[in-house]
Amino acid sequence: MIKYPFFEKNSTIGVTAPSSGVPLDLHNIFKQACRRMEDYGYKVICGDTVWTQDKAKSAIAEKRAIEFNQMMKNDDIDMIIPPWGGELAIEMIHLIDYDHVKEKWILGYSDTSSILLAITLKTGMATAHGTNLLDLRGEFADDTTAMWESVLSTKSEGVITQYSSERYQKEWNHADPSPCVFHLTEETYWKTVSHKKETIQGRLLGGCIDIIRHLIGTPYGDVQAFKEKFIPDEAVIWYLENCDLNTTDLRRSLVQMKLAGWFENCSGILFGRSSANQPVENYMIEDVYNELSEELGIPVVFDIDCGHEPPQITFINGAFAEIEVDEGKGKVIQYFK
């Protein structure tokens, strides 16, 4: 049985940096994000790790873990949102106090996805893959990003529907800030390997494949144990996004996931848009998707709203979902059951 946290207006957001903190020259835009949350009616409590960054991390693993665990146990904090992702959250994965995780949402993506997936797999508590805090600093949020509040305010046994975006951001341009942070210039078009309408049902699991692949073979990536304990006999939909991998590295990672049993009883795989996916020789990203679909005998959907080319749909690890894709448009229905 999956446990779903609940979040409501006037709640308190705890901000800690289990991966990267905010360097000094970006403190102003981080403070802007905190003020924006306060404008929305939330209280914000920032940990010490947020303000420091050195050697590709906010602090040593032990300090990051202590602060994260304290916020998870603190009854005055209703939700945790890291400022953003980073590189080395995996250093503190084993230091999380999984036995005393309280039911509160953790929201983020990129390197944060290792923590999200590990907590859901170990505890059966749903976690939220979506926007990070710094991307909420704009005067307003686009319709897709803004759904994070509605999704996380959905009560247990409730249902929430999200739709594919109209446009997405192809490149980051911090030198030219826009009122909604993202520069949404490109038309969104969800694609299927079959080139046909696809409907997929199952429990959602996923994250940044560059990151979560490193949980394979560890106690924090035991997908089989999670399925047996929390969702017996149910199919899984994997949603994956690629930050840095070329096509052969992505292929190796997917084969590793398959050999580790992560794709057993899988009903479909969703891939986010990516500026990575660079071809090796003439091995194209479409070849990767086609091979995976053929090998597993399941639908593969790609270029969805997930990952480093925002905006992002808020995907809930552990939620039951129905995914519908037709003529470039997508619909994600999540059931908190």
Rank of each mutant, 00 (worst) to 15 (best):
M72F: 03
M72T: 15
M72R: 13
K73G: 00
K73A: 03
K73F: 01
K73D: 04
N74D: 12
N74V: 04
D75C: 14
D75K: 15
D76T: 02
D76N: 12
I77R: 07
I77T: 07
D78W: 03
M79I: 15
M79F: 12
I80V: 08
I80H: 02
I81K: 02
I81M: 03
P82S: 00
P82F: 10
P82H: 02
P82E: 06
P83R: 01
W84I: 11
W84Q: 08
G85K: 09
G86M: 06
E87D: 14
E87Y: 14
E87L: 14
E87P: 12
L88K: 14
L88S: 15
L88C: 12
L88W: 11
A89S: 13
A89D: 13
A89E: 05
A89N: 12
I90D: 11
I90Y: 14
E91N: 10
E91S: 05
E91M: 05
M92D: 12
M92A: 00
M92C: 04
M92T: 00
I93T: 00
I93C: 04
I93M: 13
H94E: 03
L95V: 07
L95A: 08
I96Q: 10
I96S: 05
D97K: 08
D97F: 05
Y98T: 00
Y98M: 00
D99I: 15
H100C: 05
H100Q: 13
V101A: 01
K102V: 02
E103M: 11
